[in-house]
Write a protein that binds this DNA or RNA. Structure first.
Length: 343
DNA sequence: AATTCGAGCAACCGCCCTATT
DNA sequence: GAATAGGGCGGTTGCTCGAAT
């Protein structure tokens, strides 16, 4: 009853696909499309079940698929989305163009999961594996796990901000279609997600640091946000290691609004000389890291090694459009269908 | 040079959901 | 409403290959 299984069909081949089989399947789909997968093997002259053909196509033969090494940005996206969505690989894959759910799943299981484990982070919960009174190494692991915890909290908060911004944008749209048109604005109206950047900019203090509004606090975060309008969120740390990371908007656009490259000196100028930049792999960043066309979303972790209060900082430079799209897609996942129906 | 071991990944398995009859 | 077909999805397996011994 119900569905049939490949193995119920006798005389069907299993195991690795041969070059000839690949060519047959490719040739058939290029001409006819796949249509009903069940009918594909017979029409293409293959001794395989339809399901096997579908998997071979979607995970390997489809020319739309991008193969090869995952970029740092892709890794970050996977980790962020896994924290939000868990093992929903197909949902995660929708945020990684041209990557298949199978490839992402394999990459997670063979690399990212192990990496997080080594960092002292439980890959299933994205929370620290605490070891009270442990060694400096374990404390550092806890600190690193704190980074993940903070990242999760920040995701939630930013997704909320985007949602609120979208709500505001919808109200604007409603007004637009129910009221006489307002006088034209001096500049084009920004897409909704750029409101997040406005929030960021509004909370950016004179030296370019990010000061989180109270509404961004998360119950899952142990970060201590002082009520004053000081520069950087701080957290008490047990030792002088990297403690957390956050994205700080560094407005490097010129007068025309065009993003420009940012130099090491500019970054250090904004962060202050007492802070040390680190890269994603927790290596100390040097000038060469900054000197080569830094445009795009690049995070650097800054730690003040001389104080109990650790400045949480990281630079995001340029490519706001990518971030806008990223948050739009992320929001579409976490928001209700009703809410996203307008977009 | 031979063997062992582990990482990476393609492919399979079984369950679930939806559409159709 | 039940039976069936088809496809999607996540978990798991087992093969391949390179590094280590």
């Amino acid at each position: 009853m119900g569905r049939t299984n490949c193995i119920e069909k006798v005389e069907l081949k299993k195991g690795p696909w041969t070059r000839e089989e690949d060519q047959k399947l490719l040739a058939y789909i290029e001409v006819h499309g796949h249509g009903s997968w069940r009918s594909v093997p017979a029409k293409a002259g293959l001794q395989r079940c339809g399901k096997s053909c579908r998997l071979r196509w979607t995970n390997y033969l489809n020319p739309e698929i991008k193969r090869g090494k995952f970029s740092t940005q892709e890794e970050k996206t996977i980790i962020r989305l896994h924290a939000l969505l868990g093992n929903r690989w197909s949902a995660i894959s929708t945020h990684l163009p041209k990557r298949t759910d199978n490839e992402i799943k394999n990459y997670w299981n063979t690399r990212l999961k192990k990496r997080l484990t080594r960092m002292g982070i439980d890959p299933s919960t994205h929370k620290p594996k605490n070891n009270p009174g442990g060694s400096a190494q374990s404390r550092q692991a806890a600190n690193l796990s704190h980074m993940a915890q903070w990242e999760t909290a920040r995701l939630e908060a930013e997704a909320r901000l985007v949602r609120e911004s979208k709500l505001s944008y919808k109200l604007q749209l409603l007004r637009k279609f129910t009221a006489p048109p307002p006088p034209p604005p001096p500049h084009p109206v920004a897409p909704p997600c750029l409101d997040v950047l406005k929030v960021w900019q509004a909370t950016t203090t004179n030296n370019g640091f990010f000061s989180l509004p109270e509404t961004l606090e998360s119950p899952t975060s142990t970060l201590n946000f002082s009520g004053n309008n000081s520069t950087v969120p701080t957290v008490s740390a047990p030792d002088s290691s990297i403690i957390a990371t956050d994205v700080i908007p560094m407005d490097n656009s010129n007068a025309s609004g065009v993003e420009e490259e940012i130099s090491y000196a500019q970054v250090k100028g904004k962060m202050g000389n007492s802070m040390q930049p680190y890269d994603h792999d927790n290596n100390i960043a040097n000038t060469t890291d900054f000197d080569h066309n830094i445009v795009g979303s690049i995070d650097f972790v800054y730690a003040n090694n001389n104080s109990d209060n650790y400045n949480i900082a990281s630079a995001i430079v340029g490519d706001f459009e990518d971030n806008k799209n990223y948050w739009n897609e992320l929001l579409n996942l976490v928001s209700s269908p009703m809410e996203s129906s307008l977009f």
